[in-house]
């Protein structure tokens, strides 16, 4: 008895240690990110940084306006959601409501495999196959556009949306379905009018998490979006996202210089976006799991 008590305590201490290490890591990353970024604002105004439309960090004098990048990230993410949400929720309903039990695991597995494809593979596929195809079909001067990035990110965010939404669909009690069918509703009406509304907050959480996935993705957009900080952006023009900017320019920004600090500030803005999305997503998902 005594011995087991000791073992329990040891395991408890170890797990507690692991948990606090990851918390500490998060805290230190946040601290470092903002410590490196904040000195920028003694030289560049906060408004000019957020709402400036010109990004020329290596000019003399330099200009640090991230509006084209914020807009680029927003546009690409919005486009990705247009792809990922209908397909993701459709997949979730199909797995949960239509497929017979035996096939569910098979389809779930293939959706998970979709999530496991490295982003550089998506990027290369977009660059070599989808991009030139879009260019031909739409008669564009170049296929490297926001549209291409949005399509690819949509497919990449789909597994996130689908798996969270599928959990929510599975959590809908069978009594609801049975009641609906007993009242004479068709399976389609049951799925559309009863199950989906009951699962809606879970599906919403999936959408938010998918959004976090899309906005933070770097490699794919770097390869296919053209990386041009144009203002105002459109789906048929090249765009530059916040992630691509940091990835492109960090390697040679002199450490401690204004450009370096500006890139950390871009990272900070991105961090706040993703943090917010994840917090709200987790909150909603949590409520679903508790069945509220």
């Amino acid at each position: 008895m005594k011995k087991r008590g000791l073992a329990d305590r040891v395991v408890k201490v170890i797990t507690w240690g692991c948990a606090s290490c990851s918390l500490l890591g998060l805290g230190l990353i946040t601290l470092f990110l903002f410590r490196e970024a904040v000195p920028l604002f003694s030289r560049v105004s906060f408004g000019g940084f957020l709402f400036g439309a010109v990004w020329r960090p290596t000019s003399d004098p330099p200009s640090f306006g991230i509006l084209p990048m914020v807009a680029g990230s927003a546009l690409v993410t919005f486009g990705a959601l247009l792809v990922a949400v209908p397909f993701g929720i459709g997949v979730a309903l199909f797995i949960g409501e239509v497929l017979p039990q035996g096939f569910r695991d098979l389809l779930k597995l293939s959706v998970e495999i979709l999530a496991g494809i490295p982003s550089v593979v998506y990027g290369f596929f977009g660059l070599v196959v989808v991009g030139p195809w879009l260019q031909g079909v739409l008669g564009l001067p170049t296929g490297q556009t926001a549209l291409l990035a949005a399509l690819l990110l949509g497919v990449m965010a789909l597994p996130t949306v689908a798996s969270v939404a599928e959990d929510a669909v599975a959590a809908v009690p069978d009594s609801l379905r049975e009641a609906s069918l007993a009242l004479g509703a068709t399976p389609w009406q049951t799925m559309w009018r009863v199950v989906l509304p009951a699962a809606k907050s879970g599906a919403f959480a999936g959408v938010l998490l998918g959004m976090g996935r899309a906005i933070g993705e770097t490699m794919t957009v770097l390869m296919v979006s053209g990386n041009s900080p144009v203002w105002p952006p459109s789906f048929l023009s090249p765009v530059r996202t916040m992630t691509a900017t940091v990835a492109l320019e960090m390697a040679e920004a002199p450490v401690g210089g204004l450009h370096y600090r500006a890139l950390f500030a871009v990272g900070g803005v991105l961090f706040l976006f993703v943090l917010l999305l994840n917090l709200v997503g987790e909150l909603v998902a949590h409520r679903v799991r508790r069945g509220a």
Binding site: S59, Q144, N227, S228, S237, L248, E249
Partner: peptide, 29 residues
């Protein structure tokens, strides 16, 4: 991209120090 040494040299030798600024220009890594 603007972090590249090739970019710097192109800017110096061809654009006489100006930033490349054609609208819709693609930047490759």
């Amino acid at each position: 991209d603007s972090a590249s040494g090739t970019y710097e040299v192109f800017k110096e030798l061809v654009l006489s120090g100006e930033e490349p600024s054609a609208p819709g220009m693609l930047f490759q890594p």
